[in-house]
Design a protein around this nucleic acid. Sequence first.
DNA 1: GTACATGATTACGC
DNA 2: GCGTAATCATGTAC
Length: 347
Amino acid sequence: MDEQTRLMHSHTGVGMAGHPGLPQHMQEGTGGTDGDGRKQDIGDILQQIMTITDQSLDEAQARKHALNCHRMKPALFNVLCEIKEKTVLSIRGAQEEEPPDPQLMRLDNMLLAEGVSGPEKGGGSAAAAAAAAASGGVGADNSAEHSDYRAKLTQIRQIYHTELEKYEQACNEFTTHVMNLLREQSRTRPISPKEIERMVNIIHRKFSSIQMQLKQSTCEAVMILRSRFLDARRKRRNFNKQATEILNEYFYSHLSNPYPSEEAKEELAKKCAITVAQVSNWFGNKRIRYKKNIGKFQEEANMYAARTAVNAANASSHGSQANSPSTPNSAAPCLYLCLLSFCLHLN
DNA sequence: GTACATGATTACGC
DNA sequence: GCGTAATCATGTAC
């Protein structure tokens, strides 16, 4: 016997013995051969059901028990089940075949792509790689930012899974509770397994809507994290002092032609732990700003020229020639001539 | 909060 | 593609 049949017929064969709370004709019945008597039986039962709420609790309990034990009860119960099957299910049947929510699918896809849901893949390494490509560099700062990004994404992932687990646990507990309640009630009123199943679906849908909110919030958090990470202007950091020194040294020691070759740019980038593109940006900005306000940079130019001269003197006194962008072979060029040359070059 | 410094971006010319 | 000039957006010192 399947579950539905078992539930629907759970009262079949339950004692037909009489009960003091029922009228005599209900206790004895009509022997099942008298059609009018049966109709009257059913009429009486329905009448009692209709008036049961007007009675005291004890009376109602006694009457309910009597009704459950009545010989006509299983038949009436089955009829009610059939009616419910034909009406309720046919009405609601169409509503259950809902297509998957496109918004939920989008959220799921995004969480999967970002590595928040699905199998662990290094805290969204794909996104981090994309971010790295967008930022155009792999310097030390970038590595730090990547690990920061991954750490934050992992944090989001953990929170998401913890909350999801809580929701699923709550959903399961509530579903079990409702199912037990319905099974218990199915003894006294017609509740088919399909109805229980439908109720479970309703509960799941309710919890799904909560889950969707969680997914939406998670997606928003990831989007904010990504936008902050990917927005190069937002994450602009000043170069460290050493890097600026190296770049300035090269600039002022090559003031007559402050255009580093590709090789020189690469070497400077390596020394400063920045990208070649950043070196190019720096020289572009430096050239234009120097040209715009030579007077303002005069002191700085003198300082670096003096430093270069000292470096060159030291190098020659040690019998060796430095050969790097920061200490060019040209030794200490005459600052005035350099300035003049640079201005002529720019003009 | 403001002014200035600075790295990045964009439009343009070559 | 590179450099220039203007501009944006953020960092920093006060």
